[in-house]
Computed example of a mutant assay.
Amino acid sequence: MTLRLAASAATLATLAAFPAAAQTYDAVETQSPVISTQSGSGLVFTLRGGVGTRPEYFGSDEYTAVPDIGFSLNYLSLGSFNFGDPDPWAERRGFGLRGSFRYIGERDASEFDELDGLDDIDAAYELGLGVAYTATSYEVFGNVRKGFGGHEGVVGEVGADAIFRPTEALRLTFGPRVFFGNDDYADTYFGVDADEAAASQFGAFDAEGGMLSSGLALGMRYRLTDVWGVEGQITYDVYRNDAEDSPIVAAGADDQWGARIGITRTFSIGGR
């Protein structure tokens, strides 16, 4: 544990030192700013592309590389209605709504000896909304999403971040996260039904929803130019309650790490 924590801290330090000359999980977060009265017209948005790492499946002690993709709506003008700020680096304050999207890859039991006998789980998409309150030195937020595909449950997360600005170009965030899922979600990824128990090494387990994990997230954003930047994040989560008690997790790991780094590029359509 100490070795992994040191490695993660070193990784973020490397990201933070990147020269100025870049849940849980395959995930895409869409963030929408608060309504603004600034003048302007058109559309301003930011795309992120990079690479990350996550567990092979929920509860796995093995990790795999995944693409890191993100989208942020910075500004939208429709007639006299102005939404957001055309400056992609503007620090927004107060309450704001945002979209929330997560992609969970399929779990193919045939690829993992320890899962032999369990049912496969298709890839899932989660769509929802979130609300956040941002001040100068902190942010608190909550998201709710509905699943489609591999699971059709409802999940949510709440969190808070302290915000640090060591330099004008660098912004760091650090804070706790708590993740919730309903019975459908919990039983899909952490449950073992009677047929699976008969065909696998696991005993039957009916996973119930509730708080399923808690953890910490350490993030960074570095401004390279007016339109280019770098974003990175390291996460650490520990399974709780029925997720922790799942025989699938017991055979793997109840703590889960994640990391990502990506290059961001802002695009403008129309006047500013």
Score class of each variant (00 low, 15 high):
D237K: 09
G156D: 04
D226E: 15
Y222T: 11
E244S: 13
I121T: 13
L12A: 13
D183Q: 08
Q256K: 00
A135P: 02
A10W: 01
V131Y: 01
Y133I: 13
G219A: 07
R272F: 13
F141N: 04
D108P: 01
Q256S: 15
F202W: 00
V227I: 12
T188E: 10
I35N: 11
A160H: 00
E106Q: 13
D68H: 09
D108F: 02
R93G: 12
I248P: 04
E62K: 11
D184H: 03
V51I: 15
G96F: 08
P176W: 02
V140G: 10
D119T: 12
T188H: 04
I35H: 10
A132C: 02
R171N: 05
S137K: 07
L115F: 01
A250M: 00
G232K: 01
T2W: 03
T188F: 02
D195I: 08
E244Q: 12
R165G: 09
D122V: 08
I248Q: 00
D61Q: 08
E196F: 03
G271E: 13
R165K: 14
M1L: 12
F267D: 02
T225C: 05
L47F: 11
T134P: 00
R92L: 14
S72Y: 06
A22I: 12
R221E: 14
G271W: 00
P176S: 09
A169W: 01
V192D: 03
V44S: 10
H151A: 10
D195H: 06
Y239H: 05
D255Y: 07
F205L: 06
T64N: 08
V144I: 15
G79H: 05
L118V: 10
F71W: 05
T14Q: 12
F45S: 06
E106P: 11
F45R: 05
T225H: 01
D87I: 12
D206G: 09
